[in-house]
Nucleic acid binder design. Structure first.
Length: 576
DNA sequence: GCCGTTTTCGGCCCGACTGTTTTCAGTCG
């Protein structure tokens, strides 16, 4: 049983307890435990084996016992009994926005509804509207949400790389609203989570009510979900939900912090503040002794008032960041300006759109000191992969033109296919001539975990290979990661002094944040690459850096922050 | 159910919006 399965069951238990009308804090305890495990960089199974579950924040005696039973027997009696108390399918009602546990319970108790379809019927024939505290409007809202949910079921969470540009263009569109300032994407976007549920915008205004009015009249707005004097929720044409929240200018720091979250981070922060006699809100910090509200225009000042150093948004996940901020011991996270080169770039020699020269110039514009041209190998026929002969020609060409670009070193490379048996699909003789060899899985993705792990490790052990690309081969929303014993792969990478890629490609972001965290702790060297197939895609580097920051990476953990000479030392090839 | 720089018991983050109420419950983030 993997972590995700344990998370799902803990969340289910929380939902069911909520339906049951259990103590809300008990419900929250299960939710917290679920979240803790979601962000765990180790396998729960391993923690159970080593009797270390209690080290995880939010897991006490009772939940420890339940998880242990789950891991050891594959089942949990408590969960099965709880499920049996409710008609199957009631959980599906909770997924509808606007339906919480109280409403779900009333719907099943009073009308016997246990599925979304039954609910739809009951609304249509007026039974829902006649329930106590319901009414026609509430019923219609639920019906609307229900249909919306059905429509977008398949595209629920959107990759960061798609959502962020939409958010940024929205901010741009709102630039001319009078009196509106500081408009910033917050929430999971600002924390650089790999997928995004909705777009949170935070800003300040001379007159919030007027700014909200102007906001909802934007041409991009398809539908208004709610609108008050300081916040509005709406659906825009790209089908994203956007939440806008406005405060006074001098409360911007606390409001941005509040809207950035995560929920868990904010809860920890507020609990800690209360012990200090302070109460936090989006408006500022209230001194509980005097009742005085202190406002903060910057997040830095807001954290400082609480005796904390500034905590970067990417690591505000309620792990150990507050503890470390207290001691001024947070990591010095890698930044986009630290990146000195991009080692995974395609050209029109294989399946890239742009020419070699175009990609080089684009990399120069980024101020890179070096790049590696890594077109596909022949195995990927669909990508016009290069066979030995054409790769030989490309090597020759790159050697010829290198001197035309004195400010950047163009390294020869290839993205070589790892075949089913772990061998590579280009011969050693040509690999030996390349500056950098990248190896990737592009086929036979349904191998067993054991086969796949051996396959990847064999590639790592190949003396010519430098980097394993997008190690789990996941495609967000399209393809699950391959079955891989990730810890074994990390171990092999350390032992063979090989690097693993953090793919900045928005659909990939692979390794993902928790893997990066674990890899870094184990001493694996990482590189952040864009896998660009066109010059614009070189811009995706920021997503890779964001994910690396979520894995608590400092520049020293990322090989392509090194200057050329140092980087070449890692490659361990005769330097020129 | 978890947790402890007042606590092994008694707390547990804070506020906006909506719809149905005439002062508030439910939901959400």
């Amino acid at each position: 049983m993997n972590n995700a399965e344990v998370v799902k069951i803990l969340q289910d238990i929380a939902d069911l307890l909520e339906l049951k009308g259990e103590n809300v804090f008990k419900v929250r305890a299960y939710q917290k435990a679920a979240r803790s495990i979601e962000f765990l960089s180790e396998d729960v199974e391993k923690l159970v084996r080593e009797n270390r579950l209690r080290e995880v924040p939010g897991i006490g005696e009772a939940i420890e016992k339940k998880i242990t039973e789950l891991i050891n027997t594959g089942k949990l009696e408590y969960y099965e009994k709880l499920k049996a108390e409710f008609p199957e399918g009631i959980g599906s009602l909770l997924e509808i926005p606007g339906i919480g546990p109280r409403t779900a319970l009333i719907l099943t108790r009073e009308l016997g509804i246990t599925s979304v379809d039954e609910l739809e019927k009951a609304i249509e024939d007026g039974r829902v509207a006649r329930l106590p505290r319901m009414g026609e409007k509430t019923a219609q809202n639920i019906l609307h949400q229900l249909r919306l949910l059905r429509k977008k079921k398949s595209e629920q969470r959107v990759p960061l790389g798609i959502a962020l540009p939409v958010a940024e263009s929205l901010v741009e569109a709102m630039r001319d609203i009078p009196g509106l300032k500081n408009l910033t994407p917050a929430g999971s976007l600002r924390r650089f989570r790999d997928t995004i549920g909705d777009i949170d915008l935070i800003g300040t205004a001379d007159n919030p009510e007027e700014a909200i009015e102007a906001f909802v009249r934007l041409p991009q707005v398809k539908e208004i979900l709610e609108k008050g004097s300081t916040k509005a929720s709406l659906i825009i044409t790209e089908n994203f939900q956007v939440d806008l929240r406005l405060v006074d200018h001098d409360s911007f720091g606390s409001a941005l912090q509040y809207a950035t979250g995560s929920k868990q981070h904010n809860i920890e922060l507020r609990k800690r503040a209360e012990r200090m006699g302070l109460s936090l809100s989006e408006y500022g910090i209230t001194n509980l002794a005097t009742g005085q509200l202190e406002k903060y225009a910057t997040e830095e000042a807001f954290y400082r008032r609480q005796g904390l150093s500034y905590i970067p948004p990417e690591i505000r996940e309620g792990q150990h960041e507050i503890e470390l901020a207290e001691k001024n011991a947070l990591p010095d996270l890698v930044e986009i300006s630290d990146i000195k080169g991009d080692l995974h770039i395609h050209t029109d020699w294989s399946d890239g759109r742009d020419s070699l020269e175009t990609m080089i110039k684009a990399a120069l514009d980024k101020g890179y000191q070096y790049i590696a041209i890594s077109d596909h190998s022949g195995g990927l026929a669909i990508a016009h992969g290069l066979n030995t002969e054409r790769l030989q020609q490309q090597i020759q060409k790159i050697r010829e033109i290198n001197h035309l670009f004195p400010d950047i070193q163009i390294m020869t490379a290839a993205e070589v296919d790892i075949r089913v048996n772990g061998t590579l699909d280009l011969p050693d003789e040509i690999l030996a001539q390349l500056d950098v060899v990248l190896a990737s899985i592009h086929s036979a993705m349904n191998q067993s975990e054991e086969q796949m792990t051996q396959r990847v490790i064999k590639a790592i052990e190949n003396p010519h290979v430098d980097i394993i690309c997008h190690p789990t081969a996941r495609l967000l929303g399209e393809r699950e990661p391959i079955a891989l014993n990730i810890e074994a792969v990390f171990k092999a990478a350390v032992e063979n002094r090989k690097a693993l890629e953090i793919s900045a490609m928005p659909q990939r972001l692979d390794l993902k944040d928790t893997h990066i965290f674990q890899a870094r702790e184990m001493g694996v060297k990482l590189v952040i690459n864009t896998d660009a197939h066109s010059r614009e895609q070189l811009d995706c580097m920021r997503f890779g850096v964001g994910i690396a920051r979520r894995g608590w990476c400092e520049p020293g953990d990322i090989l392509n922050t090194l200057p050329l000479k140092e980087f070449k030392k890692f490659l361990n090839r005769p330097s020129d």
